[in-house]
Nucleic acid binder design. Sequence first.
DNA 1: ATAAATTATGAATGATAATTCATTTATTGA
DNA 2: TCAATAAATGAATTATCATTCATAATTTAT
Lengths: 208, 208
Amino acid sequence: MDERSLSRRQRERLRHRQEILEVALDLFSERGYHNVSMEEIARKAEFSVGTLYTFFHNKEELYKAMVLEKAEEFHNTLIKSLSISGNEYKKIKTFVDSLINVFMKNLKFVRIYLTETRGIPFKLKAGLDEKIKAQYEDILRKLADIFSAGIGNNIFKRIDPYLLAVALDGITSSFLVQYLEHPDEHPFDADLILSIFFDQVYEGGLNS
Amino acid sequence: MDERSLSRRQRERLRHRQEILEVALDLFSERGYHNVSMEEIARKAEFSVGTLYTFFHNKEELYKAMVLEKAEEFHNTLIKSLSISGNEYKKIKTFVDSLINVFMKNLKFVRIYLTETRGIPFKLKAGLDEKIKAQYEDILRKLADIFSAGIGNNIFKRIDPYLLAVALDGITSSFLVQYLEHPDEHPFDADLILSIFFDQVYEGGLNS
DNA sequence: ATAAATTATGAATGATAATTCATTTATTGA
DNA sequence: TCAATAAATGAATTATCATTCATAATTTAT
């Protein structure tokens, strides 16, 4: 993992792998798993098909590696964002901010993410959905803990905290989808989401 | 369309078509477009492959017909629900009720719907996403009109009505997904959704 | 400089599955 | 009862890829 400790050859090989995954993300996000061939990935990455198979056992592994590495990135960012200090409102705000941040930085991946988590996954055997869903649940639970604490501190209304987390996530992703669909008309804005969501949940008004 | 005016033969043929579409829905919703073969659809519907091709030019057409007919059903139900009379709160409530109703009655279709509208559609050439998305937009706009009227009547807060519609839809679908994932733990309940959504938007409290 | 090891190549192979169509079976109307 | 018409069949044909592997090119170490 530490680039420094690798030989030039190994670093180059790692870079090639990254390049392949990059191209794969581009194509899969545009057209889905089954509408992209290994031949095409190879061509666009400027390698031969055979080379792809020196990196990944098969197409499924290639896809899985790409998705898992991206999902990991998402998950880490979100988990990190949940650990900052402050009152519960601040925590939620930080979370939504960084959620929007990773999503905006990885727009290509977003549709794949939505498909795997909420739609019918491309490759059923891959068992990717399970892994990604577990990460997603993990986030929801941690969010729920924050809501729960906020309820204890009387800054949020008494509603099942897990469902609050689900609702917040729902609003966020519907705004995200709107943004994907009409990027000009609907800026994907944290404050907007928070104001719609919090004006109701936040018992003491928006300040305090 | 009127079964009454058809000969027995024609009615039977129509029924066969329905049976095929029914099986197709089952399989596609379970495993997605590319992981289901014509052979399998035929076998499960107790017809030969050839017969499928007397109903539909090709696999894509079969899939398209199935999705479009279901989506039409959804759309009609929702549109109808939006035209009932009452104040704006009542209208929104009726809408959410009937949304939940159609979704619950068509659970198999829901994942396909989510995939086509928010994920990467199975079959790009089908151009289904465009049609379904247009229906979806149509609903959103009509919902926005209701919010707009409600704002005029001072029952809702002054927030961009279209975004309110998006937010409501977001909460609803995230609850739906939760239900699909964990049907026992999370009943898909209209009042819950409304109470989370409306406590914030509804200026005068929940009654009036 | 050269053998050994690593990496890359892409034509050939094999599997799967969509589609066709000549033939059979069933229904209708005369 | 018997053509004529409509429906249904499924083996054969094709098309599309994923995957393999014998060969070549490149790099490293002696």
